[in-house]
């Protein structure tokens, strides 16, 4: 891992770290926390969907597991919030490994994999809406306890630092995967699984590992959600909304790239806020705009907003180069 690879990452995180110094309004800070939360969920999805090419439609299974484990451990067993947070991530990773192992060992791929993840998320949602330990239909409320030991804070700024730290870790994870042998194997499986297998890559192991990491990152977002809003119910935790957010951010920002989910989350949430400004408080209109943007991105920028920037950058740098450089053919 050279410094050159980590430098852009460092710059972005430092720039984001300066936000609370500039922005003081609670509304704006809240907005940034939401953006980073979606970026984290999206990065989780991106590890499996972007690098591994396995499109999950049920990432809410991991988000919800993280959220519920954090909440239930505190409320019902009196476990410390920080420990609950860590256990939530670990449980999410376990759930990811389990679902990944049964799905990939049965050879499910493409649409079938998408369907089975969706079904697992639905099963968890129904279970969470009836079992007493989750609070069934009422949900679980975490008691207000504004002490740092309880992972609750008077101001939103500490929450912002925490979610930013989590996003920074997820960016580093994505970067490390990209640069590692594991990442190369994973991309090989995405591009041509049979060929990768023929070359001796253990494709199932690669996919299950990617799903475990992916689930851990997404579960961390769930744990944070529970701690930030102090409330979880089955619709929030395991509902399809979070599964959609999880795939929308990386696809719009640039799938299979380190900064794609972050960029996508920013774009999607800004569009959502703009839509709310236009539509007042009309329910649904912001999601209509989401849907349109998703289709437009797939139609006109299959490599996401990041891809458009990249092409623009290449175009500008070519235009500014005095001598005609031989154009490399781009595959894609």
């Amino acid at each position: 891992m050279t410094a050159r690879l980590l430098l852009p990452l460092l710059l972005v995180v430092v720039a984001l770290a300066l936000v609370p110094a500039v922005v003081t309004s609670n509304v704006a800070l809240n907005f940034m926390v939401t953006v980073l939360l979606i970026a984290l969920v999206g990065q989780g999805w991106n590890v499996l969907g972007g690098y591994g090419g396995q499109y999950s439609f049920g990432h809410s299974a991991f988000f919800g597991t993280g959220a519920y484990v954090t909440a239930i451990l505190q409320v019902r067993y009196g476990v410390n919030a920080w420990l609950g947070f860590a256990l939530g991530i670990a449980t999410g990773a376990l759930v990811g490994a389990a679902i990944g192992a049964v799905s990939f060992r049965s050879g499910l791929r493409g649409s079938y994999f998408a369907l089975v993840t969706l079904a697992f998320a639905e099963v968890l949602r129904i279970l969470a809406s009836v079992t007493p330990i989750t609070g069934a239909g009422v949900g679980t409320l975490i008691k207000l306890d504004l002490r740092p030991e309880a992972l609750q804070f008077q101001s939103r700024v500490p929450f912002y630092w925490i979610i930013l730290a989590l996003v920074a870790i997820s960016l580093i994870v994505a970067r490390v995967i990209e640069a590692s042998r594991f990442g190369a194997w994973l991309v090989a499986v995405r591009e041509n699984e049979s060929a990768a297998r023929a070359l001796g890559v253990n494709a199932t192991l690669m996919k299950v590992s990617a799903m475990t990491i992916s689930a851990a990152i997404t579960a961390a977002a769930g744990c944070f959600y529970a701690q930030y809003f102090l409330f979880v119910d089955s619709g929030i935790a395991f509902g399809p909304w979070i599964s959609v957010e999880a795939l929308l951010a990386p696809i719009i920002g640039g799938i299979g790239t380190v900064f794609g989910p972050l960029l996508g989350a920013l774009v999607v949430k800004m569009l959502g806020e703009l839509a709310k400004l236009v539509a007042g408080d009309a329910p649904g209109l912001d999601l209509v705009i989401y849907g349109c943007v998703l289709i437009l991105v797939v139609a006109f920028a299959p490599r996401g907003v990041g891809g458009v920037f990249h092409e623009f950058y290449n175009f500008v740098s070519r235009a500014w180069t005095p001598a005609p450089t031989p154009m490399r053919r781009r595959d894609g």
Partner: peptide, 15 residues
């Protein structure tokens, strides 16, 4: 694309 359509139709109706 079909997921996008689903989101548009569902929320269009909600709106």
């Amino acid at each position: 694309v079909t997921l996008g359509l689903a989101v548009i139709i569902e929320n269009g109706l909600l709106y």
